[in-house]
């Protein structure tokens, strides 16, 4: 087990190095670079000025030199300068991370408080009209484009309340912040909650068929005791692992939501940075996300080994 963890840890490092190469190469395969973008706002491209600009930004160096500069800098805590704002990359990225993190946590909170209880109810009331209604609801949650839902929410707010729940300036109090983030978080969380509800339901159903549940029932334990203390506590494990993974993947859903609600988080920032070909921002942000995802996967894998003795690791 110990050696497995050590091995797994090294594999994780290899993955991250591979990731850095892939994202680095991929970005340079995308046609156009920052010099083209900067000239765009001037309405023309001047070849000699463009060459000077590429020289200044180090884009004319050989590709392996550029890669090494990035890795070397990263190991020394120097993430370089954003091409667009000409400020340190870390100053551009760091203030945006907490915003997206808060949004993600809140979205996760919504999806869990909605998804788990509804999933349990659906499983307990299996094949009743309630079950069917909840399943259709959860499926529609997975079927609505999240930006569409967000747009409908915005329009409804303006129409009925005359205000718009978008980000225009940083919130002053914790309460304001909660209010500001809760609507976009609910819009994203709706989709995740559908996923969690479905998982909870199937996981519950599986556990309820197990022998020990039947035994508990045979011993005369009440329905609610069986459902909530025995079944749920066992069914929740796979759900938790999925929530862990889902957390890292929420960022995909957050891209469009941050766009519609105008929230200055990292998710939208990454899209803009790709469009601007702002390599230092994209590279470092993607690596940051990758580290989170890879570490989460690592922990989930460890959990699997601990939980499922059927899986053999040579």
């Amino acid at each position: 087990m110990g050696s497995y963890i050590v091995r797994r840890f090294f594999l994780m490092l290899i993955t991250l190095i591979g990731m850095s190469i892939v994202i680095f190469a991929l970005l340079r395969l995308v046609p156009g670079n920052i010099a083209d973008i900067l000239f765009d706002s001037a309405g023309f491209v001047d070849p000699s000025e463009k060459a000077a600009l590429e020289e200044e930004l180090g884009l004319s160096d050989p590709i392996y030199v550029q890669y090494w500069d990035w890795i070397w800098g990263m190991m020394h805590g120097d993430l370089g300068y954003s091409y667009v704002s000409e400020r340190p990359t870390i100053d551009e990225i760091a203030p945006r991370i907490p915003i997206t993190a808060k949004l993600a946590v809140l979205a996760l909170f919504f999806s869990v408080v909605m998804g788990v209880p509804l999933g349990v109810i659906s499983a307990v009331k299996q094949n009743t009209p309630i079950d069917y209604a909840l399943r259709v609801l959860s499926l529609s949650g997975l079927s609505l484009p999240s930006f569409w839902l967000a747009l409908l929410i915005l329009m409804a707010f303006v129409h009925w309340f005359g205000t718009i729940p978008i980000y225009t300036s940083p919130p002053d109090t914790l309460w304001d912040e909660l209010l500001l983030y809760s609507i976009p978080a609910a819009a994203v969380g709706f989709r995740s909650s559908a996923l969690i509800m479905r998982l909870t339901r199937s996981s519950m159903l599986e556990v309820m068929r197990q022998d020990y549940i039947r035994t508990a029932r045979a011993k005369g334990a009440s329905d609610s005791t069986v459902n909530y203390s025995h079944a749920l506590s066992n069914a929740i494990l796979p759900v938790i692992t999925i929530i862990g993974i889902e957390a890292a993947f929420l960022i995909g859903g957050l891209i469009v939501t941050e766009t519609v609600f105008n929230i200055p988080g990292v998710a939208r920032f990454i899209v803009e940075a790709i469009q601007w070909r702002d390599y230092p921002i994209v590279q470092n942000l993607v690596m940051f996300i990758a580290v989170i995802v890879v570490v989460t996967n690592f922990l989930v894998d460890l959990l699997y080994v601990a939980l499922d003795p059927r899986i053999k690791y040579e």
């Binding site: 594999l11 993955t15 591979g18 995308v30 990454i270 899209v271 790709i274 993607v286 995802v293």
Partner: peptide, 25 residues
């Protein structure tokens, strides 16, 4: 071992981010 690393690398990015980079490329 190699494909697993490859898969890990591809999975370390949210689907939409991956699709965005690919679409831009």
């Amino acid at each position: 071992l190699i494909t697993q690393r490859f898969i890990d690398i591809m999975q370390a990015l949210p689907l939409l981010v991956m699709a965005l980079v690919m679409a831009a490329a």
